[in-house]
Design a protein around this nucleic acid. Structure first.
Lengths: 173, 173
DNA sequence: TATTGTTATACTCTATAACTATA
DNA sequence: TATAGTTATAGAGTATAACAATA
C-alpha cells in the first residue's frame, strides 16, 4: 500500500527528477494528481448542498431580469399563493427568522410588489398581499423557474425528477 | 372559485364575527389558516436547499465535539484522503474560492491538524498534509458523519439512500 | 403572560480586485 | 504571460437579545 494514500484507488506516484531521487525518499512529501472525494460523495449532506448550489447558480442568472434573489422569490411565491399571509406564517413556512424577514418585506413593499393590510382579526399581525404588479411578476417568474428546473434541463428523466423531489422531502419534512 | 386563493386546494374562509359582517365584504382582506407551499415544493432547488439545511443542522450539533464546521470538515477530509493536495486543488474539488480558503487553512494549521510542506515539483504551490492529530481526529469525525447520515437515521431505506445520492450527483457533477 | 412585528447588532459565508512569487 | 497563494474588503446570509403593541 503506497504511503501517499489511505484509499484503495491506485494513485500515481509523484513525478521525481533523477537529481532529486536520493533526497525525495527521505521526507514523506508527495504530490496529488487526481483529488479523491469519494468519502464526501458518500455523505447526503455534502451532495444535497452541492446540488442545491448548482441549481441556485442557474436560478440566480435566470431571475436577474426579475430582480428576485432566491429568498425574495420564495417569499413572493408564498404571498402570491396565500394572499393575506402574515410574517410569522411566512417564517414558519420557509424556515426564516423574523428579524431577517423585515428588510425583505420592506424592500418588496417599496418596489410595489406587495401591500401590507391590517389583519382581519388580529391587531398585532399584518396581512401581506401581492399587488397586481407583484402578481404579474410572479406569474412570469414562476414560469421561468419551472423551465429552469424541468427534468430535462437538469439531465434527469421525469421519473427521476419526481423521485428526487419525493426523497428530498422525506428528509426535511 | 374563492377570491382568497389562486390554487385548487380548498381554503377556509376567514373567521368573521357577526358584528363585522357588513364591513368585511367590502375590502379583499382575508386571513390564511394553512400556508400552501406546493409550488415551491415542485422546485428541485428549493427542496435540495431545505434538505441540505436540515441535514447540516444535525451535522453542526454532532461535529461540535470535534470543533469542525461543515467546510472545515470537508477540507480536512480531502486532505486526509489526499495528503499533499494543494490549495488550488482543494478549491477546485470543493468549489471554494481561494481567498476564502486561506483563513481556514491557517486556522487548521494553528490547531495542529495539518502541516504545510513545500510542493515536490512546483515552487509556487504548498502541499497540505494531515498531522497525526489531524488523522486521528478525522478518523473519528468521519465515523460520526457516517452515523448521522445513515439511511435509517434520515428515515430512508438503504436503497432510497443510494438512489438519492446518485440523483443528486447527476445534478451537480 | 404570550405573541407579532420590529430594531440593533454580530457573526459567518461568499465574492471581487489586486498584489507577490514562481512557472 | 499565466498560475499559486495571499491580502483587503464588501456584500449577503444568518443568529441572538431586547423592545412596543396587542392577544
Amino acid at each position: 500500500m503506497p504511503r501517499t494514500s489511505r484509499t484503495s484507488r491506485p494513485i500515481a506516484r509523484p513525478v521525481r527528477r533523477n537529481a532529486d531521487a536520493d533526497l525525495a525518499d527521505l521526507p514523506e512529501v508527495s504530490a496529488v494528481d487526481q483529488v479523491d472525494t469519494r468519502f464526501l460523495q458518500s455523505l447526503l449532506g455534502y451532495n444535497a448542498r452541492r446540488a442545491a448550489l448548482a441549481i441556485i447558480e442557474r436560478f440566480l442568472v435566470r431571475m436577474e431580469e426579475f430582480g428576485l434573489r432566491p429568498v425574495e422569490f420564495s417569499v413572493m411565491s408564498v404571498i402570491h399563493h396565500n394572499p393575506g399571509v402574515t410574517s410569522r406564517q411566512l417564517c414558519a413556512a420557509l424556515n426564516l427568522l423574523p428579524p431577517n424577514l423585515v428588510g425583505l418585506i420592506q424592500s418588496l413593499d417599496a418596489r410595489g410588489l406587495l401591500t401590507r393590510l391590517p389583519h382581519p382579526h388580529d391587531g398585532r399581525a399584518v396581512g401581506l398581499h401581492p399587488t397586481p404588479e407583484g402578481q404579474a411578476l410572479m406569474q412570469q417568474a414562476e414560469q421561468a423557474a419551472l423551465e429552469i428546473e424541468e427534468a430535462k434541463s437538469l439531465g434527469l428523466t421525469p421519473a427521476q425528477h419526481r423521485t428526487l423531489l419525493q426523497l428530498l422531502q422525506k428528509v426535511y419534512l
